[in-house]
Structure formats: structure tokens, C-alpha cells
């Protein structure tokens, strides 16, 4: 049996919007291999880079925050981004666990 999987991120997004913040919702839509968070995991980001929730185990959140701020600046409705396994020798964002994830970003307005 599956427990209903709910971390109350949408409720928090609503609070942020009611406080006149701009909010981008990031959702894990696909995973391959051993990714840390399951499909449907969420985080929200505002225009100043505050964020809540998670789409990985802390591996790619900083990049997601950057992308979300970019989406707000460019005033785009949505975007899909993918993260692959990180290269240990390079300073790049990636998933140390060896998995891959696709994250969907959408502005709420």
C-alpha cells in the first residue's frame, strides 16, 4: 500500500504567494537509476532564492534555485531540466549517487 505522499509544499507555496512573493514550483517528473527522491517530490523557490522542500538529497538544489530565479527574471511559464551523474573531478552540479532526474519548473501566478 502506498501512503499518501505529501510534504505540504503546495500549502507553503500558497502562503508565499499570499505574501506577494513570486513562486516557482519544481517537481521531480522522471528518475533513472538510483535517484534520491521519488517522482512527485517538490520544492518551491522565490525571486530572492529562498527555497523549501527538495528534489534531491541536496545535490542539485542550488542549480534548481538558479534556474527558478532565471525563469522569474525571463518571465517564462515553465521549463524542464535534467541532471545527470556528477563528475567527481569537476566543480559541477550533479547527482553523486549515479542517478538521473528530470525536474519540471513552473511559475505560479
Amino acid at each position: 500500500m502506498k501512503n499518501s505522499f505529501d510534504e505540504k509544499i503546495l500549502e507553503e507555496a500558497n502562503d508565499w504567494l499570499n505574501a506577494n512573493q513570486k513562486v516557482v514550483l519544481a517537481t521531480v517528473i522522471q528518475t533513472w537509476g538510483s535517484s534520491p527522491r521519488q517522482v512527485g517530490s517538490r520544492m518551491i523557490v522565490n525571486e530572492t532564492g529562498d527555497f523549501s522542500g527538495s528534489v534531491s538529497g541536496g545535490c542539485v538544489e542550488s542549480a534548481v534555485v538558479r534556474e527558478c530565479i532565471g525563469l522569474i527574471k525571463d518571465n517564462k511559464p515553465c521549463k524542464k531540466i535534467e541532471f545527470k551523474v556528477s563528475n567527481e573531478s569537476a566543480w559541477e552540479v550533479g547527482l553523486a549517487c549515479g542517478g538521473e532526474i528530470a525536474v519540471y519548473l513552473e511559475q505560479i501566478n
Partner: peptide, 13 residues
């Protein structure tokens, strides 16, 4: 997503 839709989702939940 529209804010109104988000509110509706929260209400349904």
C-alpha cells in the same frame, strides 16, 4: 499554474 488552481488543489487535499 495559476494561483487559483493551486488554491483549488489545496482545498481538494
Amino acid at each position: 499554474m495559476k494561483h487559483s488552481q493551486l488554491k483549488e488543489i489545496i482545498k481538494k487535499k
